[in-house]
Design a protein around this nucleic acid. Sequence first.
DNA 1: TAACATATGTTAGAGATGCTAACTTTATGA
DNA 2: TCATAAAGTTAGCATCTCTAACATATGTTA
Lengths: 213, 213
Amino acid sequence: MSNGQKNQDYDAGSQPRTTGKKTYHHGDLRAALIEATRQLVEEKGPDSFSVSDACRLAGVSTAAPYKHFKNKTEMLVAAVLEGMLRHRSRMLAALEGIPEGSPERVTAIGMEYVSFALREPGIFSLKFGGFTDRIADPRLEEGGQQSFNILLTEIAKCLDEPGITEEVRRRGFLLWSFVHGLSFILREQGLAEKGQEFDLHDLLEDVARRMLN
Amino acid sequence: MSNGQKNQDYDAGSQPRTTGKKTYHHGDLRAALIEATRQLVEEKGPDSFSVSDACRLAGVSTAAPYKHFKNKTEMLVAAVLEGMLRHRSRMLAALEGIPEGSPERVTAIGMEYVSFALREPGIFSLKFGGFTDRIADPRLEEGGQQSFNILLTEIAKCLDEPGITEEVRRRGFLLWSFVHGLSFILREQGLAEKGQEFDLHDLLEDVARRMLN
DNA sequence: TAACATATGTTAGAGATGCTAACTTTATGA
DNA sequence: TCATAAAGTTAGCATCTCTAACATATGTTA
């Protein structure tokens, strides 16, 4: 943005079809635009994001994105979907090494949920914070459901229930609400402000204990 | 919006300076614009809100608002502040008639919190859902703190603590997080979707019990 | 290999928006 | 009463989203 370079290599992990440096075609503009979107959403906030900015960052004209996305919303959706993939894989990674059936696994999921909100507040806001009509995409709902199912599975094991029963669903709903709200509040004001100096892990353990009996 | 009337009387509870009908001056354009903003934010969503729309709805030119508000954000802030006033007074009204020290008072606060999110999802989103930079106004923070203090006072009475102690603050933080998250989730998907058919009052009572011991 | 089809860029521009400048009309109060 | 301030208006600039028409690269097939 601050330099005027054009067509810089921005592949973000995908293989460009040409190895050349300044071709007419970009190589993988779609991925580059998603990465630019992610970056701008975090830097300036979702509300200030503009397609034009992303184009400047990726070094293409302002009409280029419309070969890859239907409109601005579709660009944002793509960035959010990418973020959810990262989110889910980190969640699963956080579970490794913790014994099955341990409430600590539920705590770990919560920790990772909050971490995501703090690490990528812009993407988090886009996914969860907006008005219903903002981004209503079935793929987003499905992704959220998948994450939720990971939590339900852990709760079922903790409660020794035979699968995802009504009671598991209820506890999951309560825990999810809590972690969700906690993420919003912490993203807004941090842990140590206004005389609240709680340890995050303590809080989550406390709540997990209360909710799992 | 659907009719082409201009300068319709839109006073929204404030006394216009003239009783006339079609004056050059509006009477109380500021209040009319705030009401128009509120209405549009609920109808089309906060992201689709435009100053121009509000002007059309209030029947004035697109430059008129800038005599009353610094910019678009200030208009939204004004609408949110008004919403928070309504919210707080309903919260206090909900407490009337419930005996002091009863956990039911905490439940009532939660009910009212969730109700607000469902009744005015647009304003709720603007206040809580946005990116940190979206609307960062000290008046909004102060208003939120006031509502939070109402909750803390009730919790202190329930726990028989001598005022707002560290423990009260901790429980309040947990409860607030829960209700906050619950509001977001319900606003997005409702209570009865996806096989979740819980009774709202039951849920809140359950959580209040768990959190207040 | 030539030539066509398709994918992926570009420039130009329409229409909407946020906001400012300069002007006009009404209200206020010395 | 009349100057001044408050609160409207029109005109217009810069920017934004998105489309149309055109240009260039890629790759498939005769």
